[in-house]
Design a protein around this nucleic acid. Structure first.
Length: 284
DNA sequence: AGATGATCCTGTATGC
DNA sequence: TGCATACAGGATCATC
């Protein structure tokens, strides 16, 4: 469930409260582990590591240690990270990782569906994750390069983590609504103004969502257990059948890229014949 | 290259 | 009340 704003909010919680030295690894569920390093080995390597902060790569988190190694985490659909938990608090169901720190508090990972993952990284992680849409160097020009010549639906491109890191179903729909672009528009058919609008919309909605601590529908809470406050500001996601805030049209849904897609047919028009796509050099 | 469907899971909401 | 079904903030793999 968590997308960039939720993962970023969790990252901040982990960076703030996941400090000190690892005193004990009380539980690490091997079913959560992906990658070459097995769970037992991860648990062994975690012991006595000194936490130094947390990084985010798209929807991935790395809990970084002074040694330069890090614990790689992905929250999948239903994952929650809990920091600053007192050891006398009973483990919630589906708790797959429990790390005791020298400050006396624990870091725990819960994930009922187990779509998330745990791994070990040495140095920077090797992940198929594209540029971060909030990075200073993610310009409209870079977005234009990303969509140029591609026939895939723009929403599919936004969701493709190898193209762009961190955008999920909620914020893809929200950004496209803000930019007044139909989700099924072939990416390469977007004209320069549409790309500029999408770039602006994407960054704005992600920034605003982070400022609100993310979006909570059911599961999601941040590392301190607080729900996000952005749900009330969503314009299309989860609003099928209600009125478009911009044109009073009806919000509808369709299936695209395997996901339920929310949009307003009236103000997110499909591309028309005669629209001029952005053509860019593929060099560089 | 890209679309689609299946797969990995449990929890919750709905419809009968 | 029970039971069946659909669906969910994700990612990956096989198949066409």
């Amino acid at each position: 469930m968590p997308e960039l704003p939720e993962v970023e909010t969790v990252r901040r919680g982990l960076a703030t409260r996941g400090l000190g030295r690892v005193e004990a690894v009380l539980w690490l569920d091997p079913r959560m582990v992906r990658g070459p390093v097995p769970g037992e080995e991860i648990a062994r390597r975690l012991l006595h590591q000194e936490a130094r902060g947390a990084e985010r790569y798209g929807k991935f988190l790395v809990w970084r240690f002074a040694s330069g190694d890090g614990l790689l985490l992905h929250l999948g659909m239903s994952g929650r990270l809990e920091v600053g938990v007192a050891p006398d608090v009973p483990w919630a169901p589906h708790t797959h990782l429990v790390v005791l720190l020298t400050d006396g508090f624990e870091v725990r990972l819960r994930d009922p569906r187990r779509f998330g993952r745990i791994g070990w990284v040495v140095g920077p992680p090797a992940l198929r994750v594209g540029p971060d849409p909030l990075a200073p160097d993610f310009t409209a020009r870079r977005l234009a390069q990303l969509v140029a010549g591609r026939r895939r639906a723009i929403k599919a491109v936004l969701l493709d983590q190898a193209s762009l890191g961190g955008v999920g179903n909620i914020y893809a729909d929200e950004a496209l609504w803000r930019a007044r672009i139909h989700p099924a528009t072939p990416a390469g058919a977007l004209d320069e103004r549409q790309v500029a609008r999408l770039h602006r919309a994407l960054r704005a909605v992600l920034r605003e969502a982070i400022a609100s601590g993310g979006t909570s529908f059911r599961d999601y809470v941040d590392a301190l257990g607080r729900p996000g406050r952005f749900a009330g500001r969503l314009k299309v996601y989860g609003r099928r059948g209600s009125r478009c805030a911009r044109c009073r049209g009806r919000i509808e849904t369709m299936h695209l890229a395997g996901r339920t897609t929310h949009f307003c047919r009236a103000c997110q028009r499909p591309a028309e014949a005669g629209d001029r796509p952005v053509v860019m050099s593929t060099e560089g």
